[in-house]
Design a protein around this nucleic acid. Structure first.
Lengths: 225, 225
DNA sequence: CTATCGTTGTGGAAGGTGTCACATCGGTTC
DNA sequence: GAACCGATGTGACACCTTCCACAACGATAG
């Protein structure tokens, strides 16, 4: 397994080489193709996962079948950590958005690491605090912004994390369908499509298959406020 | 200061009497009257707070002045912990909803406790995980439920945490104005007022000053889904 | 090449919510 | 008691968003 990504992950950078080596012994490799789930809402879980490559979406399903996404995560990020500290079952479903490789770590093995190096628990606390901050941000957006604003914000966020410079702008290969993008911003697919169309029409974006190229990041940023 | 509440708080129950005693030495007492703020969005903070008595609302302000509440917390709960693990400034304003007494703990003093008893960091992780879970829940509600549904859910939640049995139902002395309740559920005051009026008209509620009496908890629960 | 199916693009009707406007109520101040 | 002010109650209207319907597109399988 390619452990370089993990070595650079915030959670592990503070670890000594020894401890890190011991830890990697315990990692469980998981490979997923698009659409495959790591775990589902309601499952009992005792692992947390690091994304080695690919992307994972965390989503919830309403009783009537509608879905909404809490986050889309990429390489170096971790998820499923809540189950380790909160006894209740998984409160979200984790699904691969593309070909994805994960490294799983069981609760008991993490415990061992926590004993030996208390910095790790601080790192975990930081990771959780950051996530909480992000979620609070999303909450506020949902209350204050209209759909186009939330779409703009989502694209900028995805650009920050997955964007790569292109000849005429920033290529954001988010790998999401418009349906998924809509679930991420909490709106209907149709409305999101129309918002995207408007941005394209204004010359701020160019659409590609499961990707966008941001042409005018300034305007987009302005629209997102 | 009345430390009984703190002794029973999840974060401290696992501590030995010695460690707990040492900790209480470091606590900073803060008294607030309704409307007074502990800290504001953008402040630099290095304390976390435990609520001894009263209620605190955590809120954010949009650039245009509109507000929305992330949570309303009561005795035994803690807040402001994110600043300890995430270097960025406060991302919410904490304001007293009623006469409130807090116990503040500075970062450096918490560190000392964390060194001596690793269980506390696990407790902190649990507290954060629970908060994240709650926030995810609110996010989903905002996407899936209409305003009356969210109002019903908010009242039930407040009832769980602050409710007291009354002669004809459950008295929820939430101490929030309808304006604040509206900010909590992410809606306008008028719409919330109309939702409440409808519930009263159906015989599910009785309104009192900054409080409600839930008369038919079953129906209310049904409406909240 | 053709059929199929998931995805994307668009229009229009229906409904929920925010905004505005104003009446009412209750407690506080002078 | 009168004036005042924050909080609450309620209607009308505009607007955004969802929902429904259907066309167009593109990749894949046969």
């Amino acid at each position: 397994m390619d452990i370089e990504v993990l070595r650079r992950a915030p959670l592990f950078t503070t670890l000594s080489d020894e401890v890190f080596a011991a830890l990697t012994e315990e990692l469980i490799e998981v490979d997923l193709s698009r659409g495959a789930s790591v775990f589902r809402e309601g499952d009992q879980g005792d692992q947390l996962y690091f994304i080695v490559s690919g992307k994972i979406k965390l989503g919830r399903t309403a009783p009537d079948g509608r879905e909404n996404l809490l986050a889309v995560l990429g390489p170096g990020e971790l998820f499923g950590e809540m189950a380790l500290f909160d006894p209740s079952p998984r409160n979200a479903t984790a699904t691969a958005v593309s070909e994805t490789r994960l490294a799983g770590l069981r609760h008991e093995n993490l415990r061992k690491v926590l004993q030996n190096s208390p910095e790790v628990s601080v790192q975990l606390l930081q990771a959780l605090a950051r996530r909480l901050r992000r979620t609070n941000e999303s909450l506020a957006d949902l209350v204050f912004s209209d759909v186009p604003g939330r779409v703009a914000k989502a694209l900028l966020d995805l650009a920050d994390r997955f964007g790569r410079p292109a000849t005429d702008g920033v290529l954001v290969a988010h790998e999401l369908t418009q349906e998924e993008l809509a679930q991420l911003v909490g709106a209907s697919r149709e409305t999101v499509n129309k918002a995207l169309a408007e941005f394209v029409q204004r010359g701020w974006l160019r659409l590609e298959a499961r990707a966008v190229v941001i042409l005018d990041i300034q305007r987009l940023r302005q629209r997102s406020r």
